[in-house]
Simulated assay, not measured.
Amino acid sequence: MRYFIVDDDMASRRMLERVITEGGLGMVIGEAESGVKALTTVLSLQPDMVLIDLLMPELDGIETMEQLKSRGYQGQFIMISQVVNKEMVGEAYEKGVEFFIHKPINRVEVQSILQKTTENFRLQASLMAIRESLAHIGPVVQAPKQRSVKEIVLTILNDMGIIGEVGSDDIVMMIEILMSQKGRGAQLPPLKELYEAVAHKIGNVDITKESKAIEQRIRRTILMAVNNLASLGAVDYTTAEFEYYAPRYFDFQEIRSRMKQIEEDHQEPIKVKINSKKFIQVLYLEVEDKLMRL
């Protein structure tokens, strides 16, 4: 992985660079002390990942990110911030931030987050390589029976133990909608648009109200998947479903926290952070991959 660091604090830049290089997570190909100074260099170098401070003079992290994307930068962003403002964090996620690194910088947290983003990056690169290789292959004789998108999604949801949950139908429809948008690539549109698209597909409903209901149903379903996988892991972390789905679809630290609680037999479940965007994106990529292999 090739990283670029944008932060007005030199100590933070040095710390991040050491964590990346000493941890074997990749290489830092450049840095800048402000968003303004970062624009030209990032667009020229096209790093895989930009680690960018939220609060900076002239251009803040979100504004810098918007300008880079509007000028053609195709990589990903991780936001660095000591601000715990829900509105700003929410805006950053909506603009395309994958993860947050909190200040003061913690080596373990940085390593954990960068390992997750590296895994996602490699998954997308692998799927891109598959697409490119298939583009050079002639017409393929189709098997007598192709599995549908719905069948593949339900198989995956069944593995996580959530096929009967209230949001499972919403998830199926969402993936069907994404699969119908050819040429869209691996990046998801904003989740709000997807919720509205599913609401339209349901039909004869108040789109705004139904979109919010869909969001809550999907979040509850994903939370149930966390609980199911954590329960599997607490009993036997070598279980195939746990080993495959827990690190790919979820923040593994959240799974581990829930496992610990189960192991200690707490009655009241802790709050678990749900990353619906990551869950849907990984599910979409996996379904696309399985369809390519048919």
Rank of each mutant, 00 (worst) to 15 (best):
S12L: 01
D7K: 06
G35F: 06
R219I: 13
N85F: 09
N204A: 10
M88N: 04
L154K: 10
M79I: 12
N227G: 09
L25H: 05
E210W: 01
V84Q: 15
I202M: 04
A135E: 09
E22C: 00
L157H: 07
P189S: 03
R13L: 04
Q142P: 03
A11I: 06
R2H: 14
I218D: 05
I156R: 06
M224S: 14
D8R: 01
K260G: 15
S211P: 09
M27I: 04
R2P: 01
Y284I: 05
S211H: 13
D159F: 04
E94C: 05
L55T: 13
R14T: 08
L68W: 05
S133A: 10
K290H: 07
K116A: 14
I5T: 03
A11F: 08
H102D: 03
N158Y: 02
R18W: 00
I262H: 01
S133G: 10
K116V: 11
S126E: 02
A143M: 03
D251I: 03
I78D: 08
I262R: 08
G96V: 01
E33G: 13
Q76H: 09
E63T: 13
Y249P: 02
D8N: 14
F4Y: 14
K150Y: 00
E286V: 04
V282P: 01
L232A: 04
V153H: 04
F252K: 07
R131K: 12
T208E: 10
E215D: 13
R256G: 00
L16S: 07
T208Y: 05
T238M: 14
G61W: 03
M27V: 13
E63G: 08
K182R: 13
I78M: 03
Y284S: 11
L16V: 10
V282K: 09
A129V: 05
A125Q: 15
N228T: 11
Q82N: 15
N106Y: 05
E196C: 01
E132K: 12
E119F: 13
Y73P: 00
P144T: 14
I101L: 15
K37D: 15
I162Q: 01
G164L: 08
K69L: 11
I52V: 15
I218L: 05
E193A: 11
L51A: 03
V83T: 09
L59Y: 11
V108R: 10
V83Y: 02
N106T: 05
L25Q: 09
I20H: 00
D236N: 14
A240V: 11
A129E: 09
I156E: 08
N228L: 03
E165N: 13
I29K: 04
Q253I: 11
I175V: 15
T40C: 04
V198R: 07
L55G: 00
R107S: 07
K69Y: 08
